[in-house]
């Protein structure tokens, strides 16, 4: 299939971003809030969802392909194949539910290590639902500590009030723009044979939680 669009490219870079985290932490609402400025209570995502957003960051026209994965346990096996080739991974937790936070290190962190094909891939920790300040159980300090330990970016936001939603994606993208290897991927062909080192069964990682 030769896509013969010889026209002027509508963007300078294309980045693939992936959103992960437990069921109900607000991944889909966060994405919806970012892409269409609306807030809705959504039913659990089935499998994977996909949205495109064009943004201009640092003078560059970017096309963001954002994959929103289902947090539900039964789709866990599916998510693994979407890590491939992602330049940025957004790990979302709910500041009012501690287990969604601890699961990030217990489960999701391991998944990234297992399946991400991109060593330089930028990770971002996002604490969602800060509008429910009264119900908060995970402090900002804890989030910062985790991010520092794990070597990722950190932000707290609310998909409902749209606080920090734009910033969340913008910071991630800025960081990708600063990383030459990711930049190269976003503009040219992807390296070959990355997928040959296929990781072992995912069962090992899923069995840890139950």
């Amino acid at each position: 299939m030769e896509s013969s669009s010889g026209a002027v490219p509508e963007f300078d870079y294309l980045f693939k971003l992936l959103m992960i985290g437990d069921s109900g932490v607000g991944k889909s609402t966060l994405l919806l809030s970012f892409t269409s400025d609306t807030f809705e209570d959504l039913s659990p995502t089935i499998g994977v969802d996909f949205k495109v957003k064009h943004v201009t960051v640092g003078g560059k026209k970017l096309k963001l392909a954002i994959w929103d994965t289902a947090g539900q346990e039964r789709f866990r096996t599916l998510t693994s194949s979407y890590y491939r080739g992602a330049q940025g991974i957004i790990m979302v937790y709910d500041v009012t539910r501690r287990e969604t936070f601890t699961n990030l290190s217990d489960i999701w962190g391991k998944e990234i290590d297992l399946y991400s094909t991109n060593q330089d891939c930028i990770k971002m920790l996002v604490g969602n639902k800060v509008d429910k300040e009264s119900e908060r159980v995970v402090s900002k300090k804890e989030g910062i500590d985790f991010a520092r330990e794990y070597g990722c970016l950190f932000i707290e936001c609310s998909a409902k009030t749209r606080v920090n939603v734009e910033q969340c994606f913008e910071e991630l993208v800025l960081k990708i723009l600063e990383t030459p290897s990711l930049l190269a991927e976003g503009s040219a062909g992807v390296k070959k044979n990355i997928f040959r080192q296929k990781p072992p069964e995912s069962d090992a990682s899923t069995s840890g939680c139950c």
């Binding site: 299939m1 503009s187 070959k192």
Partner: peptide, 17 residues
């Protein structure tokens, strides 16, 4: 592989739409 390139290259269309 080529489809991956197609997807990633900035000059071609990449979303299904």
């Amino acid at each position: 592989e080529s489809s991956e390139e197609r997807v990633s290259s900035s000059s071609s269309s990449d979303a299904v739409s």
